[in-house]
Design a protein around this nucleic acid. Structure first.
Lengths: 267, 267
DNA sequence: TCTAATGTTGCACGTTTTCGCCGAATTCAA
DNA sequence: TTGAATTCGGCGAAAACGTGCAACATTAGA
């Protein structure tokens, strides 16, 4: 309908918006978002840096105000591993899909990487996801309502569940507290689990991204059994043996960093 | 789309309407939309830009209206003045109140300053407010649902309005696009105005914080007349004369920086 | 009705900006 | 120190720009 291509100035404004939110940006990531070459992005960043609006660093740029610290530091080490998962999950996207993005830090990183040009619709209960997608012109954003649980990082409870019934998703990314071969996905919080179940119920496909330390744990609240999950995204260091435990006749397993056969997105 | 022949002025009005909706426009797109050459469109945009109605950039034009700017661009400039307003507004709070915090940068700054010890309940449609209050131990946070408008910085529309009906507020802080003695509060966006009206309807008291540059403007959508507002927070530089224009038999007027009785804020 | 003034349009032309790519230099991590 | 990723500068192509110009439409006034 509207913007598949961006005015150069508009693109720089958007980069600036991301930066002023305190998030560092990477050239490679921005190149995906705006579907231009990294060269163009680097030129943008150089230009912004020349005006003192950001600090150019190797690989991308940092916001000029020191407000970036808390977020980038906190994530720290896990961040790169989770980013690798998110990169892999990007290959699941198709144009004009309607996505559900659940709470969770990995989903928030995925939100950062969503390209603008796919005309995506995103429904979310995660506050960080909302903050990151709010001023993305290429993405229609919808929020669930209800009480905000700081522990989860977003909306949970009855109202969020009933809000979900308003939508039909092509693909739902569930935040995964834990994954276990026999019990599937489990969660800390009952209300949170309710939301995840509702999202899965209303979605054509269900995807989960799981870092290795979340494997094998069993938490109090059942979310979904393994055979209800369509896409599993693991880290590349996974033992192929333990990987096999999670294979069902329905799902497809991706591992981060691995360049699979059908990884070219775009259609 | 069928009446292909636009009068030149009609065309410029259409372009302006698109821009005032917050959408950037590209010369190429407009040329197709109105079936004229890009030259004609460029001339239109140049003309509009000369009148200050848009900002001409390479490839098209960007809206110039302040509320159409991405949220992050708006924040930061008049920050200290808005913080002073927020400090003053803090004196209106009482323990165990249920507040509504509308979208708007001033309300977001107020959220920053809300004390943890008052056992407040906060309902909001603003994404930045949610992000700032999410992990505040002493505050119960609730979010409205629905489509997220980047121009507004939060949720608007029918779903947000119906969500509001679930709550009863003691005090609602409305984001004020503009304030005028005879028309009261007015807004750029119709859906946004609906949400504000609903919030006021369900609140015991209504408060607005207004920076001086928002005074006297009249925007397309009526929100509330002056006599429906209980607390007005102005900047301290306000002329006491023009301040008198806003006095009603119902409201109470506060000015920021005023050495009032109970102003200890704590930051 | 005729005419002049004004505004608009599309096109041509030379200029400026942006883009993707390439190669050499630099930086980072192992 | 080696190797991979990143950066910078330059190049050519493509796109967008401003300007001038001639043709056409609209309007106002004689």
């Amino acid at each position: 309908m509207s913007s598949v291509s961006y005015l150069p100035e508009q693109r720089r404004t958007e980069i600036l918006a991301t930066l002023s939110r305190g998030e560092p940006v990477s050239a490679a990531e921005l190149a995906i978002r705006f579907s231009v070459s990294e060269d163009a992005i680097r030129r943008d960043l150089r230009k912004l840096a020349a005006e003192g609006l950001c600090e150019k660093v190797y690989g991308g740029a940092l916001p000029v105000s020191p407000s970036a610290q808390p977020y980038s530091r906190r994530a720290g080490e896990d961040q790169s591993r989770k980013e690798a998962l998110a990169d892999t999950a990007l290959t699941l996207l198709k144009p004009r899909q309607c996505l559900f993005l659940d709470v969770g830090s990995t989903n928030a990183l995925l939100a950062n990487k969503l390209p603008n040009h796919l005309d995506l619709t995103v429904v979310t209960n995660s506050v960080p996801v909302m903050a990151r997608l709010m001023d993305r012109p290429g993405i229609s954003l919808f929020a669930l309502g209800g009480p905000v649980r700081s522990q989860a990082g977003g909306m949970t409870g009855a109202q969020a569940v009933s809000d979900i019934e308003r939508y039909r998703f092509d693909l739902a990314f569930l935040g995964t507290c834990s994954l276990c071969p026999d019990t599937g996905v489990t969660a800390f919080d009952g209300d949170d689990a309710e939301v995840k179940r509702a999202a899965a119920r209303n979605s054509e496909k269900v995807a989960v991204m799981v870092t290795s330390e979340k494997l094998g744990l069993r938490l109090p609240h059942q979310v979904l059994p393994l055979n209800r999950i369509d896409y599993l995204v693991f880290e590349k260091e996974m033992q192929s043996q333990s990987l096999h435990q999670y294979q069902t006749d329905r799902n497809r397993i991706l591992t981060s960093g691995a360049e699979r056969e059908d990884l070219e997105t775009e259609g």
